[in-house]
Design a protein around this nucleic acid. Structure first.
Lengths: 219, 219
DNA sequence: TTTATTTTTTAGACATGTCTAAAATATATT
DNA sequence: AATATATTTTAGACATGTCTAAAAAATAAA
């Protein structure tokens, strides 16, 4: 078993190493709000446990073993966030710090049952993919609504330029980030879209389609 | 804020001091599977934080402050147990160790929302009363089914002599510990009871009424 | 390519919460 | 009441995970 601290480092490595070959000690220290010397100590320990590859002065990155641990923490974090928002009615923005605590609870059966209770969600409330039990994780696949294939569905994860007027429009239509949406058809004459959302079909203008980010789902 | 360790000691004190004037160091050590010397150290610390009254060589007990902390931990523990059983489908016997972890999660809003989600339960799945947010806690009020007032309701929390044949009978009738039950009437000629349980009315013999423990509820 | 700067590691300190062994106190026995 | 036994505390050690300050290595600048 791993300590909370070790888990935090592995999760941090996972987030920082995306794409990169190695992560520097300073980056980690900065991310975790710790001193580089503390990070050095922990990196040594994680290397001994075969969770990371670590070359002094050169940086570190996760081994397969470390990556699987990181993914299981991220899985727990995102499932708990989903629970907090979907079941307990928390808002979006307040769940992160609570999930940071819950992600360290240790019980495989708990997570299996939570996953089932939530009906095996694919994305968390922020639109990030939830790793599967076996450690696979879907790549983010964000598109504009206007780029969706016909009948393709996904989850509204954001808007293109942060224009507040669009947020207001969505609000007024009772559309929230996190809602599922499916493209039903694009109308010829004005390129507006017929979409299925919240159990009904509505029409969204071309401009809106060009500014609404959708994380596509494939089941 | 208190550490997990401090919380464990306070909760332990709460459980051990019921009725007694003071709890001995050895009792605590035994309950927590620790050495008495470790307990001494912690008692000193908790006394400094005004969570306990502590007289060297004489034993300790909770202050009002310590008691409120203990009750808030017990509240969290029992709410989480209720969640695990009622929502996630855990069995009775497996929830304790998971709740031991969850009870240390720190977020008042989380517990408020969980309480609401569970519809403000009064008893946990083991039939123990759940402390209220303000620190009040109902006294256990276990009676035999045969001692219930007419129309009184409660939760089945156990059987008198652990007779397995009664458990089998309950099983067969799909009655479980934790089920709510209400006495509707006692029939004159054989003292058998008409009770409302699991959305239907059934008849239970006098013998069964004399062996079924009910934790009565008053709302 | 030598020097200055930045990054990283090492060495040693500290807090927390545990332990063992020994000393102090309380309780039980005769 | 004196002695034996049991309980509790103290003193000192250790592991974990952090820190500061100094040394070592890598990188950038002149």
């Amino acid at each position: 078993m791993n300590t909370k601290s070790e888990e935090d480092y592995l999760k941090c490595l996972y987030h920082l190493q995306q794409g990169k070959a190695a992560v520097s000690t300073n980056e980690i220290a900065n991310y975790l709000s710790m001193k580089p010397s503390s990070v050095s100590d922990m990196l040594k320990k994680l290397a001994e446990k075969k969770c990371i590859h670590y070359l002094k002065y050169k940086g570190s990155n996760l081994t397969k073993k470390g990556e699987l641990i990181a993914l299981s923490i991220i899985r727990k974090h995102r499932l708990w966030e989903t629970f907090l928002v979907n079941k307990l009615g928390f808002s979006w923005s307040k769940v992160h710090s609570i999930a940071e605590q819950l992600e360290h609870i240790n019980s495989e059966e708990l997570i299996d049952k939570l996953d089932h209770f939530l009906a095996y969600p694919q994305l968390d409330p922020h639109g990030d993919p939830i790793p599967k039990k076996n450690g696979t994780i879907a790549k983010l696949n964000q598109k504009l609504l206007s780029e969706l294939q016909n009948k393709e569905k996904g989850i509204i994860t954001g808007i293109k330029k942060g224009s507040p007027s669009l947020l207001n429009f969505l609000d007024q239509k009772k559309i929230k980030l996190g809602d599922q949406i499916q493209l039903r058809s694009i109308l010829e004459f004005d390129q507006s879209a017929e979409v299925f959302i919240n159990s009904k079909i509505i029409n969204l203008s071309e401009k809106i389609c060009n500014n609404l980010l959708i994380e596509t789902l494939h089941d």
